[in-house]
Design a protein around this nucleic acid. Structure first.
Lengths: 130, 130
DNA sequence: CTATTTGCAAAGCCTTTGCGTGACT
DNA sequence: AGTCACGCAAAGGCTTTGCAAATAG
């Protein structure tokens, strides 16, 4: 994996996020620093970095892929109203059954994804008003 | 929700599945019984039935949505090679933390999705050969 | 130097939607 | 009869990809 300015700026911008932006959100932020970058480059670099384990590509419900600067194992919460995705605290992570013990089959388990969904605090508050 | 032949055939075909077909897989199977049905109708009915809680719409990793005839809560296993999705046994379901107790926030939690991924038995066996 | 990466634009894939016709209750 | 659903086809949204030029190692 070659080092390019595009790649490092994308990573830096992603790392300023506490939430989990989509590729086009990152694109528009990165463009403030690299006005000539293309959306394809953003996608290509996000893909490569997630392959390399530097970041996490999230494919949760709700359509668009999202990217997480923290590649450690943790659960996510997705708002069904505004589609935002937040991390859940680590102590929330459940001790999932031993990866190799899933029933009696010979599957090779690589990992798991735990996603909660509902209304985030902001959208929950707005719903109270109606 | 009105009763149409299209809807009941789609449901019947889905219910013959132990796995979790995509909309276009169902479309081609349903077309054997209703040759003039359109893909749009398949999508519309799957959406309605999942809204009604009759079936489950799965939005897991890997791109396409998949549909599950069993609307109860259970975990899934997705093959990263062939993209198939299987149910995991119910006794595998983890006791997830009480839905309202996720840290100290005021989120409204509606549910959760637990997905394991890796190589299914078939693809795991094929990998042994290489 | 040569292989990888970029920008651009086009294509691809899956899904949704507008419209006029037909079917359910 | 009135509304909801259908078939068709087009549009839509997100993501990937082919290509020639630029760039990293």
């Amino acid at each position: 994996m070659r080092n390019t300015e595009q790649k490092s700026v994308i990573l830096e911008v992603l790392q300023t996020h506490k939430d989990h932006p989509t590729a086009d959100q990152l694109y528009s932020e990165v463009r403030e620093r690299l006005p000539r970058i293309s959306l394809g480059t953003v996608y290509r670099n996000l893909e490569k970095m997630s392959q390399a384990g530097v970041i996490l590509k999230l494919e949760l419900g709700g359509g668009q892929k999202r990217f997480d600067p923290t590649p450690t194992d943790h659960a996510h919460f997705r708002c069904v109203n505004c589609s935002s995705v937040e991390d859940l605290p680590e102590d929330f992570a459940i001790d999932l059954p031993d990866i190799s013990s899933i029933d009696g089959t010979n599957r090779i388990v690589l990992g798991n994804t735990l996603e909660y969904y509902g209304y985030c605090e902001k959208c929950a508050a707005e719903r109270q008003l109606n």
